[in-house]
């Protein structure tokens, strides 16, 4: 049943990604070149709606947060390495799969590379776990926890700042 839910959710998400044209190389590089912010508009809209909706579910005891650990070593180094690879490929893992769906053959080479990257990481994991992944480990924390504020004090700020950023991008024609 879980697998069927995964497939259906993926199909719906894939339709949204393809029809909003956010899975194209030109759009993803456009964002990195600060020339075309379509993917930022899409992602930020998703995050704002998701943030409010998920915290409502949590407050109503209908869902649990899934919090990734804050490990500065892994998050910062991993983020920098990911960014370099993303700029070379022009698709991120999820959008590469979607790009293959709309016929982009270079994304298929990207998927093959990702399998290699995952295999190499699995080899390196024991060494990384003992070093980089211990640097600046704050555990599973959220921003409201770090700021010592109730989440409904923090969320409106994110919504206001997010909408302001979107309006600014829209006005500048990005």
């Amino acid at each position: 049943m879980q697998l069927i839910f995964g497939l259906i959710t993926g199909i719906l998400f894939g339709i949204l990604l393809q029809r909003a044209e956010v899975i194209r190389y030109d759009r993803q590089l456009g964002a990195l070149l600060l020339k075309d912010m379509t993917i930022v508009k899409f992602m930020l809209s998703t995050i704002l709606v998701g943030m409010v909706g998920v915290y409502l579910l949590v407050d109503l005891d209908l869902a649990k947060l899934s919090i990734k650990p804050l490990i500065l070593g892994g998050n910062i180094l991993g983020g920098l390495i990911f960014g370099a690879g993303w700029a070379l490929l022009g698709y991120c893992p999820g959008t590469a799969a979607a790009a293959v769906g709309e016929g982009r053959l270079d994304a298929l080479a990207g998927l093959a590379g990702m399998l290699l990257g995952a295999a190499v990481f699995a080899e390196a994991y024991p060494a990384l776990k003992a070093t980089v992944l211990t640097w600046g480990d704050f555990g599973k924390v959220t921003l409201p926890q770090l700021m010592d504020r109730h989440h409904w004090v923090v969320i409106p700020w994110f919504v206001v700042l997010g909408v302001a950023l979107l309006r600014w991008l829209h006005k500048r024609g990005l």
Partner: peptide
């Protein structure tokens, strides 16, 4: 292009897993 995409995919995935 395929070579660059393959390399980029490998690097991006290693970074994504490191950042969890």
């Amino acid at each position: 292009r395929f070579g660059v995409a393959f390399l980029g995919g490998a690097v991006a995935m290693f970074g994504a897993r490191l950042a969890d």
